[in-house]
Design a protein around this nucleic acid. Structure first.
Lengths: 127, 127
DNA sequence: GCAATATAGATGCATCTGTATCTACATTGG
DNA sequence: CCAATGTAGATACAGATGCATCTATATTGC
């Protein structure tokens, strides 16, 4: 837990100092990129990101305000909406990757052999 | 990272619903318990817990307010102080353990064999 | 001895999170 | 059909976090 907290803080700091949004935005943008222009319901995004409901709501709010995500009404469900990534969102997601990747490499990649990394992933997936 | 976040959230929720303080208090109390009535300087505690400086300052503030920790001036360094755990702090730390332990057992202990757990600990320590 | 610099710890401000609750629409059972 | 209940999403309020900076004391180099 300590390790993952440290890693997270390092990634956040690296992203921020490069002028990028926080990590949670990256995860969300990645999911939104996967579903493409068809979009996704916020409650589905919530399930994929394992975030609390209010967290998802506010995260989307901020990303919409920043112009990285667009909303439209859901036709099948009057309570719902559909969110999808914008061009700008795609660009930002891509731009964030190098920083993210670099920290992960520095923090993990260089300290484990490939076999060890595979083993670690295997053990964690059991949890 | 997702796993550790989930685990943390589960532990926090369990502690809160049992009327206990958050997990960060547990970690701090445990360190304070280790050094006993001799106490410790906040900046040393900070290093052990890997917390930011302002985080340590405010965490101690809250714990002092709650009566779990006492402060006294440091004689060797006029800028400094020494903090140490109170009787109440000891009791609370002890009372928190069952909840904490239970969640860890449910979340990890039951899903890995002993050998796997050892291996996981080994790999994580390499990081 | 003292000016420059470093370190311990606190804190104002903006932002973020957690909790509880609210509104609006959907579904279900009689 | 409609009352009761359920679900999607937003939000007010309180508390926590991150950042930058402040005060006070300590250390260092001249």
């Amino acid at each position: 837990m300590t390790k993952s907290r440290q890693l997270l803080e390092t990634v956040e700091a690296a992203l921020k100092s490069a002028g990028h949004p926080p990590l949670s935005w990256y995860d969300a943008l990645l999911e939104l990129e996967k579903v493409g222009e068809e979009g996704i319901r916020p409650f589905e995004l919530r399930q994929r990101l394992l975030l609390p409901q209010y967290g998802t709501s506010r995260l989307l709010d901020r990303m919409v305000t920043a112009g990285l995500v667009n909303r439209r009404d859901c036709e099948e469900d009057g309570r719902g909406q559909i969110v999808f990534i914008s061009e700008r969102g795609l660009a930002i997601r891509k731009a964030m990757w190098p920083e993210y990747s670099k920290v992960l490499t520095d923090g993990i990649g260089d300290k484990l052999t490939r076999a060890e990394a595979v083993q670690l992933a295997m053990l964690l997936s059991k949890l």
